[in-house]
Simulated assay, not measured.
Amino acid sequence: MAGGGFGPGPGTGKEYPGNLTPYVIVTCVIAAMGGLIFGYDIGGVTSMDSFLEKFFPSVYKEAEGG
């Protein structure tokens, strides 16, 4: 039978010395939200001509038809 992702693994207890505190949960939620917000924001930059010309000249030349 397959095991779950959130329950304790095989063994008798915790295998790490840390605790899951409210501070840890809030920090993880804020980091995840920031990743979602700024991760989607980067998509427009990678299609800008100036970005492609500076960092990926071969892709820029191909996009221009050269």
Rank of each mutant, 00 (worst) to 15 (best):
M1G: 13
A2H: 10
A2K: 11
A2S: 12
G3S: 12
G5A: 07
F6M: 11
F6Q: 08
P8G: 07
P8N: 04
P10S: 07
G11L: 02
G11P: 04
G13I: 08
G13W: 06
G13F: 01
G13Q: 04
K14F: 02
K14G: 01
Y16W: 13
G18L: 13
G18T: 04
L20M: 12
L20G: 00
P22A: 04
Y23L: 13
Y23P: 04
V24K: 12
V26S: 08
V26T: 05
V29I: 14
I30G: 04
A31P: 00
A31G: 07
A31K: 08
G35C: 08
L36Y: 07
F38H: 07
F38Q: 09
Y40D: 11
Y40W: 13
G44A: 10
V45G: 00
T46I: 15
S47K: 12
D49V: 07
S50N: 09
S50V: 09
L52A: 03
E53A: 14
P57L: 15
P57F: 12
V59S: 13
V59D: 01
Y60W: 13
Y60P: 00
K61W: 05
K61G: 02
E62D: 09
E62M: 15
E62H: 09
G65C: 10
G66P: 00
G66D: 07
